[in-house]
Write a protein that binds this DNA or RNA. Structure first.
Length: 747
DNA sequence: CTCTCGCCTGTTTTT
DNA sequence: CAGGCGAGAG
């Protein structure tokens, strides 16, 4: 059978074990997705299983999309009908279908962590609790943790031991009441509610068990308690559950992920078959050795050792840098040097870091050098102010009960409806048992409002009413244009700020409009409701386009599941990685180590690590020390370098005359011998060079891997991928340099 | 109700 | 150092 071809014995076993519980322990780069997709294909094609009875759960839309695509590639259209999606999107789908059992309207809103925070703040102020003693972010964290432990407000209140907890309990209660009144769910509810639904409605559960006879879960090590319960509830029907994961790559403990789910799989399913995928197809032996060595310092593991047939490989390069700026330059230099060698283009490079803030220094250098890059993560597109504003209008139109969104836009752009007036509206709404939006429609009846405010409220009410009526009649794109026109949003933005900021905002709104058009063309269900649901559940990595030829910058967390020929991991300093708060508790430290392991194992060919001896942390600078994790990599695997030292890779050659040795092949040059063009140029190779810096230099489209001393170009010969230069140095030596470089365009 | 200024606080990671 | 938030004035 074609589906079984090209699989190694372990993968094959994973594919063929379709009945009963199966745990696939899949090491990094071991062909996990391959095994999973082939397994699904085998089920459908080989075993004649109806695609509609297959449910595959992932953590990111990207992973889900990839899985779907690859199964379809194997099966053609016959894979249609299976459910492949993230936990969150599948749950949203189930809740929508079963809304009446949950006490929600089908068009419920999904609140992200920012919306949550707004709601927590409101609860705190409504309860007249001090937000200094109870920082909203912290309280939100407590509520989220409670939800992930399946503890509701009532139970939380019962078990609250001290004043602090009792107060949090009150906020939690208020929060939960408000979010329900808003016909909304937060990310945690999205998973928790289906669990409740299944627990309380056996007949509903039975329906889903009947439907999903084959359950597959990717990244099982990252499941939290509600996710675990959810899968267990469904799987306990037919017990055809296949979990794929790697305990060494569990990095979401802070989000409630519970490593015990994977470690105790065999206890939950005693008849389980456990399959280990240990052959790595991604990395060189050296990189794998480094990774294995690091992760072996962890205690709580299932234990497995990755191996590869690809022996050897370049050593792991470690840069010791004076500060973060020098670190950024060292990385930039390495990218420029390696670019073009071995056919590498910019998309082959990934710069990984522990915290988003670290991207700044890298960004500065790359921007200055005009090397194109993308940053994944940080502030997401859909979290930008202007985008959230527009979306909030749409969310209110879709779900008029959405209180958080209503508050967000009621006075944006300014309409003169402030907190005072809004409070009166809310009191009135509460007394009349109507929504605040409806209350605004009846502004005439509300006492103590000025005539102006009343008018503004009625106009606002009419605006939203109009949108609600139109929302299913016109495309989301048209609807959004209506919002922009009727609110004068863009004009207001332009007026408010200096043109620089404002223009980029306007630009972002345009981007939103085109994203909507794209959605309308692509989506099965192009409705506003569907769009809002998708938007609430996309992450930045989902949108990352691996085809663009640019360097990728992202956090180690975002990098999970991806691979790159060349990987840089920066900021390997104690206190930053591992982050100081995580270094105190052994379990947290192990998680940091797993994160490092994830980073290392993203690399296929080359791995560069770096640390700075002085790192600025909020403004002030401070002395840093190399990360303890560095000491866990065996010394023979490491090549230590100073920034500015670079390698002349095999394709570039410098031939010497006179006293200079020919430099061929790969070696490291003394930084003093290296140079940089100090003048701006535009394609013409000529003139004098100042050989005093320590970096390779650009001449037009070329990068010259430098030589020594000071000198001038005497001759040049050839254009295209190979140019010969003759340089006469001040020392009297003459050098011929052959430049071979496959730069694409002047960056 | 809006705006401005200045203080303060925080950087862990995200569906 | 930055962005967010509160206080106080117009």
């Amino acid at each position: 059978m074609i589906i079984l071809d090209g699989l190694n014995p372990a993968q094959r076993e994973a594919v063929e074990a379709v009945e009963g519980p199966v745990l696939i322990l899949a090491g990094a780069g071991s062909g996990k997705t391959r095994a999973l997709t082939h397994r699904i294909a085998y089920l459908i094609e080989g075993k004649g299983v109806d695609p509609a009875s297959v449910l595959a759960l992932t953590f990111t839309n990207k992973a889900a999309g990839e899985m779907k695509e690859r199964v379809e590639r194997l099966l053609g259209r016959s894979g249609r009908g299976m459910w492949v999606g993230t936990f969150h999107s599948v749950c949203a789908r189930i809740l929508r279908a079963e809304a009446e059992h949950v006490g929600l309207d089908r068009n419920f809103a999904i609140y992200d962590s920012n919306d949550q925070l707004t709601l927590v703040r409101r609860a705190i102020s409504a309860l007249e609790v001090s937000d200094r003693q109870y920082p909203p972010a912290q309280v939100r964290g407590r509520i989220s943790r409670a939800k992930n432990a399946m503890v509701g407000p009532a139970e939380f209140a019962r078990s609250a031991g001290n004043i602090y907890e009792q107060t949090v309990a009150k906020v939690y209660q208020h929060y939960q009441r408000e979010i329900r009144r808003s016909n909304a769910l937060d990310f945690d509810d999205l998973i928790v509610e289906p669990v409740h639904l299944f627990q309380e409605h056996p007949e509903v559960l039975a329906r889903y068990r009947e439907r999903f006879r084959f359950l597959m879960i990717d990244e099982y090590q990252d499941t939290n308690r509600p996710q675990y319960l959810l899968t267990k509830l469904i799987a306990d029907g037919r017990r055809n559950i296949c979990c794929v994961g790697d305990d060494d790559q569990s990095i979401y403990r802070f989000r409630g992920a519970d490593l015990r789910n994977i470690l105790d799989f065999e206890r939950d399913y005693p008849e389980a078959k456990v399959i280990r995928l240990e052959q790595n197809y991604r990395s060189t032996q050296t990189i794998l050795d480094a990774g294995n060595a690091v992760i072996s310092h962890n205690k709580g593991r299932k234990g497995k050792t990755l191996w590869t047939e690809r022996t050897g490989g370049e050593k792991v390069v470690l840069f010791r840098c004076a500060n973060e700026r020098e670190e950024a330059r060292a990385i930039l230099d390495a990218v420029r040097t390696l670019r073009g060698t071995a056919g590498r283009t910019l998309r082959d490079f990934a710069l990984l870091y522990r915290t988003n803030a670290q991207s700044r220094a890298l960004e500065d250098e790359f921007r200055r050098a005009a090397v194109p890059y993308v940053i994944v993560g940080g502030l997401r597109f859909y979290e930008r102010k202007e985008i959230k504003d527009i979306l909030a209008y749409l969310r209110v139109a879709a779900n008029p009960r959405d209180g958080v969104s209503l508050r967000r836009v009621v006075n944006v752009p300014r309409r003169g409806i402030g907190d005072q007036s809004l409070a009166k509206v809310e009191d009135f709404a509460f007394a009349e048992r109507i929504t605040p939006l409806e209350a605004m429609g009846r502004a005439e009846e509300i006492e103590g409002l000025g005539a102006k405010v009343r008018g503004a409220m009625q106009r606002f009410h009419a605006l939203v009413r109009g949108l609600t009526e139109e929302k299913d009649q016109v495309s989301i794109h048209r609807l959004t244009e209506a919002v922009l026109e009727q609110t004068g949003y863009l004009e207001a933005v332009r007026e408010e700020e200096g043109t620089v900021e404002a223009e980029s905002r306007v630009e972002n709104v345009r981007e939103l409009l085109s994203a909507m058009e794209e959605f309308s063309e692509r989506a099965e269900d192009p409705s506003l409701d569907a769009f809002l649901r998708e938007v609430a559940l996309v992450s930045d990595v989902d949108q990352w386009d691996s085809r663009a030829d640019v360097v990728t910058l992202m956090t180690l967390h975002s990098a999970k599941g991806l691979e790159f020929p060349v990987v840089f991991i920066g900021g390997l300093e104690d206190g930053l990685f591992p982050i100081s708060r995580m270094a105190e508790n052994p379990e947290d430290l192990e998680e940091e180590r797993r994160l490092f392991y994830v980073g290392i194992t993203r690399a296929k060919e080359r791995l560069f690590l770096s640390y700075a001896m002085d790192r600025r942390r909020y403004g002030s600078s401070g002395e840093s020390h190399p990360s303890r994790f560095l000491g866990e990599i065996p010394e023979p695997l490491i090549e230590r370098r100073m920034p500015g030292m670079f390698e002349v890779e095999k394709q570039s050659r410098v031939t010497g005359h006179g006293s200079q040795e020919a430099v061929t092949g790969q070696r490291t040059l003394d930084p003093r011998l290296v140079t940089r063009d100090t003048r701006p140029r535009s394609g013409e190779v000529s003139g004098a060079f100042d050989f005093e810096d320590t970096l390779p230099f650009n001449v037009g489209n070329w990068v010259i891997h430098p030589t020594l001393g000071r000198g001038q170009i005497r001759e040049k010969d050839g254009v295209g991928p190979e140019t010969k230069l003759t340089i006469r140095f001040d020392t009297g030596a003459t050098k011929k340099i052959i430049i071979k470089y496959a730069s694409l365009e002047p960056a």
